[in-house]
């Protein structure tokens, strides 16, 4: 296993993250997020590097990582589509719209497109219930979805 190297910018960010907390283990989630934002996944090498930085074992890092749904250890698409299917969205037709989205991307829910551009996931409530049905693509929320609007959104991403 090769050694994971943080970039210079990342080192700066790590320093400012560590400064927030009296105990450095608190920086675990922020560091995992930092790595994933750069690499799209958290690799075993990165887990070792983060563990070293925070004085915890790689196994501990992995046990925490596996608890949270937002971390990925396997390759995902450039655009992560999280489609809310919880109650307010369900009442407003999200099941059909999710089916439509999967068909449009020609994948099943949970899969990544062949060109590694899109990954589609079912998601629990994203706290935008008044805009239901909604989805989140990377960091952007899209509400009041219809089939046409979904097509437009997907087509506009490159």
């Amino acid at each position: 296993m090769s050694e994971y190297k943080f970039s210079e910018d990342q080192e700066k960010e790590i320093a400012s993250i560590l400064a927030k907390y009296p105990f450095k283990t608190s920086a675990l989630l922020p560091l995992l997020t930092l790595v994933q934002r750069a690499d799209q996944v958290v690799s075993p090498e990165a887990m070792v590097a983060i563990g070293k930085r925070l004085d915890v074992s790689p196994a501990y890092v992995q046990s925490v990582l596996s608890f949270y749904t937002m971390y990925h250890t396997e390759k995902v698409g450039k655009y992560m589509i999280l489609f809310c299917i919880n109650i307010s969205c369900q009442l407003n037709g999200s099941d059909k719209l999710l089916e439509h989205t999967a068909k449009k991307l020609n994948i099943k829910v949970g899969e990544t497109t062949f060109d590694e551009k899109f990954t589609l996931h079912r998601e629990e409530c994203l706290a935008a219930c008044t805009e239901a049905p909604m989805m989140r693509v990377n960091d952007t929320y899209y509400g009041d979805l219809t089939e046409q609007r979904i097509d437009q959104i997907i087509d506009s991403l490159d």
């Binding site: 927030k20 907390y21 105990f23 283990t25 608190s26 920086a27 675990l28 989630l29 922020p30 995992l32 997020t33 925070l54 915890v56 046990s63 925490v64 608890f67 949270y68 749904t69 937002m70 971390y71 629990e124 409530c125």
Partner: peptide, 27 residues
């Protein structure tokens, strides 16, 4: 005051799970 981001777990809205998560553990 600092911001701290979770990573997708409903249970972290429960106050003691939130504390565990903020300490860098499983929520």
């Amino acid at each position: 005051i600092h911001t701290h981001l979770g990573a997708g777990a409903y249970i972290c809205g429960e106050e003691s799970a939130l504390l565990n998560s903020l300490e860098g553990g499983r929520g």
